[in-house]
Simulated scan of single mutants.
Amino acid sequence: GISGQMRDDYLDLFGDAAVMGKPCGTDLRDGKHSYTVRALLAVVDDDERRVVQAALGDPSCTLETIAAVREIGERRGVPDSMRADMRRYAQQASAVAAGWRPRWREEAVTFFELLPLWSVERTM
């Protein structure tokens, strides 16, 4: 759930458009206050905030501006902190699934233990 949505949001700015088969920055252009945007706004200075906020909700935001926002996030450590948060949420979900073992078939429990971790590692 949470880690999967975070990964979607993360990939929208920090993913590889060629691998995903769609452009990056869609959430930013759409004005979505995604996990990534919220993480960015939590760590930027005033000048960087102006760049992010100018792009937020601008459907004509250029690839260069998206790249500038991405660079701000990378410089501020947003990808690393988001990956750590995603992993933490995925581990919590896996632990919940492990608790199903007395009532569920082993292969079903194993699937639901691994699914959250897969969602954190996926590239598309």
Rank of each mutant, 00 (worst) to 15 (best):
D58I: 09
R105K: 10
Y10M: 03
F111M: 12
V44C: 13
C61A: 01
A68K: 14
D9E: 08
R70C: 05
L11R: 06
R50M: 08
L28R: 03
H33W: 12
T65H: 10
M124Y: 06
K32G: 05
L28V: 03
S119P: 04
A95G: 11
T123G: 10
G1P: 12
E107I: 00
G21I: 07
Y10F: 14
R50Q: 14
Q5S: 08
L41T: 02
G21N: 11
R83L: 15
F111R: 14
R7Y: 05
C61R: 00
T36I: 02
R70P: 02
R122M: 14
T123E: 15
A108K: 12
I72Q: 11
D47A: 05
G15Y: 05
R87I: 03
R75T: 14
Y35D: 01
P102N: 09
D58V: 03
P116G: 10
T110G: 01
R105Q: 11
D27V: 05
I2D: 09
V51Y: 03
E106K: 08
P116H: 11
I2K: 00
D45S: 05
E107V: 02
F14R: 00
D30P: 01
G77W: 10
G99V: 05
D47Q: 09
G99I: 06
S119R: 01
R122V: 15
S3R: 12
L115M: 13
R122D: 12
G4S: 14
D12Y: 06
Q91V: 11
E107G: 01
D46W: 04
Y10V: 00
G4A: 14
C61W: 06
R105E: 10
F14N: 02
H33K: 11
D8T: 06
S3E: 15
A54R: 10
L114D: 14
G73R: 07
T110Q: 15
G73D: 05
T36H: 00
F14E: 01
K32C: 02
R38D: 12
V96F: 06
A97W: 04
S60P: 02
L28M: 10
G1E: 13
S34T: 11
V37P: 01
